[in-house]
Structure formats: C-alpha cells, structure tokens
Write a protein that binds this DNA or RNA. Structure first.
Lengths: 240, 240
DNA sequence: TCCGTTCTTACTGTTGACAGTTAATAAGAT
DNA sequence: ATCTTATTAACTGTCAACAGTAAGAACGGA
C-alpha cells in the first residue's frame, strides 16, 4: 500500500474534536503544576492559547467540573479545587473501596494470560527502578497507575474503570502536582504490588482485596506525612 | 416586608442556568421512561422543546455523557446506553463497595443527632408504606434512595457523595424506568435499612458495612430475577 | 433485480457576536 | 480621609449562523 497524503502530512489530519484537544491541554496544565488550587480557568485565555473558539474550551472545563476537579459558580467561572486534608482522606477512602473490590473481582475473572502480563509489568517496573538514578521512587510518568489500572481492567467493571481511570486519576494528578511524589516508597510499593498480583494469580480474591486495601492505606499514610511536612516553596504559586 | 414583583411573578425570576434546566428536562425524560436505551438525544429537538439554543442543551447532554449515561460518538451524536446484565452487575458492585464503606464511616463519624434523624426517616418510610395501597413496595419517588443518601452524607466523604448521589443515581433511574421497580421487597428492604441504621447508631462500623453490603447484594439478586422475567410490554419503546 | 454511485438531508462541531453579571476602579459627597 | 455611588472592564451565559460529516434516498447501469 503506497503512502497517502495523510501519511506524509500527519499534521493536516489532526482532526480530533477540539474539546478533546482543550481537555488534554488543561490536563497538561494541571499535571505540570501550572494550575494551582484557587486558580481560575479563563475560557478566553485558554481558547487563545490553543487558537480555537470558546465553545470547545468551555466544554473541556465543564468536563473537569463534572469530575469534581474544578468548581463552577454561575457567572463567576471555574476555579481549581483546593485539596485539603479532608479531600485527600476522602479520595483515598474511595480508592481503597473501589480498588480492593476490583482486586477481588480481578482474581476471579482475569484471564490467565492477562495475569501473566500483570506480573511481567511488575518485572518491567523493577527494571525501570534499577536502571534509573533514583531507585527508591517508582518510575516517573504514570507507571504506578499502570498497575492499578491493569487491576481495574481485570475486574471487568466498566463503572469502576471510568471512575478510577478518569475522574480519580485527574484528582491524584493534581495532588501530585501540588505536593510532589512520595520519595523512598518505590521499592515497598513494588513489593506490595507483587503481593497483590500473586494473590490475583492464585485466584485468592479475599487476600487480593485485603492486600490492595492495605497497599492503598499505606500509600495514604505516606501521603499525609508528606503533606504535613509542608508544601515545597517552588511548587507554591506566586502571586501574579 | 411587603411582597415584591419577584414574589408575585415567580416565573420571571427563573434565571437559573439554562444548562441546568436542560439537564433536569433530560433527566425527566429518562425517569419517565421516554428515553430508552439506544435512543438518540437530538440537540435541536430538545432545544426546541425548551425554546432555548443548542448550547445549553449540548452542555447538558455532555454532562450525562460524563456520568456514563449516554455514549457520544463524534459527529454521530449521543445515545442512551443499553444497560445489559453485565452493566447491572457492575453498577451494583460499585454501589456495594462504596456504600458499605460509607456505612462503616458513617458509624464512626455521624453526629448522634443525625443518627436519630436516620431512624426517624425509617419510621416515616414505614408509615408511608402502611398508608399506601401497595404495602409491599417502598414508597414511590426516591424514598429508597433517601436512606442511602443519608448514609452517604453521614460518611462525610465528598467523592463518594458525588459519585453515588449524582452519577449512579441517574444510572439507577434509567434502570428503574426500563425494568420497573421491584415488587414485594419493600418490607424486607425497610427491615434491612433498620439493621444498618442500628449498627450505625451503635458505632459498629464493621457490622454496618457487612449489613449494607448484604442489603445491596439482596437488592441486586432481586433485580436480576426481575430482569430475567422480561421487560414489560408497555415499557418497551415502540418503533417510530 | 441488484449493486454501486451521486445527491440530499439532517445532524453535530465550531465560530463570532451579543447580552448580562460581577468585581474592581474612579468620581463625588460628607 | 472615608464612605457611597457611578463607571468601566472583564468575564461568563446564550444565541444564531456556518461548516463539515455521516447516513439514507434517489438514480443509473449491469
């Protein structure tokens, strides 16, 4: 098959929805830490940055509002929520409930082929950790989430998948951007992941649920100690 | 204070956002069973029904898309999802996970004043059941949800509240509209509610969680037997 | 009759403009 | 100087029109 114009000029076929483009843009602003709690999402400003109209931008903003990441007040606009201690607690509680359930169901429903893929994923994570300079943190990006999403997917529950994979994920991205990632827990987290994966492999749903529950609770404990240590100065938004 | 024009002509001060108006309209279509799985949400049609523009209608439709109630394909529009057996299972699984957690937390965190209000609510439900003709079904409307929402609120978890109170609620409204409500479980459900409430009152979180989990599981079992009995003819959407 | 092609239609995606509201700023009175 | 009152500015909410796409209808050839 000969290459077409679309193959040679891929920039011209960028014809996804502009609302998706705007969503990714805003998500990027959040994960990069450029959008801090309390900041307002100016529709015209974002539209200008992307050289598009306000319509798709507005739609993207309302998506994040539906996810609870921003709060919108009529005629006042949308501003990024402030994730205080209570919000963090609530976030981890929901994750613990949903993901421990997902681990139980994954142990019962996952194909053996996908279970092996789960273990291989953890091997790759181990390799990435040894290779990188900082061996005590989980590899950058969303590798930590990869495992959790794989378990979610294995549970074969579309609702839980949507909640954790879309809404909560952005919430935790914002949390990361604000308070940084937890140091020194990479190896332990990987170990806990492996225990969960083995329980899933053994089709031991109860054990998988308990281990996942404990894993998330440990992660929470680590998070609050990190937060109580204070927010790094360079991550604090300067007054404009 | 003398009455103003706003008091005499309340229809003139209907100045909520049109998107909210459209959202309620669509929600009404769903709960009334006028919007069946597979039906397309025509933006211009809905806008014409409300005598408003497409903008707010579009926003309302995308809200339901975020909640997973409709699926949107680019350039093809949004259609109501088909809640098959797998979807129902997933819905109840998530509810069981979240609400059993909420029951546990409510037992620990609820004010004693709110706990008493919880029991009084059940007394009112009992009265409503005795008063109505059909004593074997929970009172119409959202009384069943009232209890569950009260527990959710008592858990003091904003995330779980948003998920169950907004997204899942519409899902179950659609489920109700499609398959009707479960007959003959009103008294049993009330009994189970009362057991949960008493466990919460006793601050026995573990017991409250187990009882709530069992309650939702029973509800699920009842739902699938109802669904396997088939869809009532009058609720099936006729071909247009 | 059947299949492929063109045309039409109806819908969504996007835009720019206008209206209404809120908040900040400037002007004025005490 | 301080409080109150206009004025301005900036932003959101809403609308109507345009552009683009996908499905179906009409058409023509085998």
């Amino acid at each position: 098959m000969t290459d077409t114009i679309a193959d040679r000029v891929p920039v011209l076929v960028e014809r996804g929805l502009l609302a998706d483009k705007a969503t990714e843009h805003i998500r990027g602003l959040i994960t990069a830490g450029r959008l801090c709690p309390g900041d307002r999402l100016n529709e015209v400003e974002i539209a200008a940055e992307l050289s598009i109209s306000r319509g798709p931008v507005r739609e993207a903003v309302r998506r994040f509002a539906s996810a609870g990441l921003v709060v919108s007040e009529p005629n006042l606009g949308s501003r990024v929520i402030d994730i205080d201690a209570a919000a963090v607690r609530g976030l981890y509680e929901v994750r613990e409930a949903l993901e421990s359930m997902a681990a139980r169901l994954a142990a019962e429903r996952m194909q053996s082929r996908d279970k092996k893929a789960l273990l291989e994923m953890l091997d790759q994570h181990a390799l990435a950790m040894c290779g990188s300079a900082a061996t005590d943190t989980y590899p950058a990006g969303s590798s930590d989430w990869d495992f959790h999403l794989a378990v979610l997917k294995g549970s074969d529950n579309a609702v839980a998948w949507r909640i954790c994979g879309n809404e909560l994920r952005d919430m935790f991205s914002l949390l990361r951007a604000r308070h940084g990632r937890v140091p020194g827990r990479g190896k332990v987290a990987l170990q806990e992941h492996r225990q969960v994966a083995e329980a899933i492999l053994d089709q031991d749903g109860d054990l998988a649920a308990v281990l996942m529950s404990r894993h998330i609770r440990n992660s929470y404990r680590n998070q609050i100690t990190l937060m109580s240590a204070g927010v790094p100065e360079d991550r604090r938004k300067e007054k404009i």
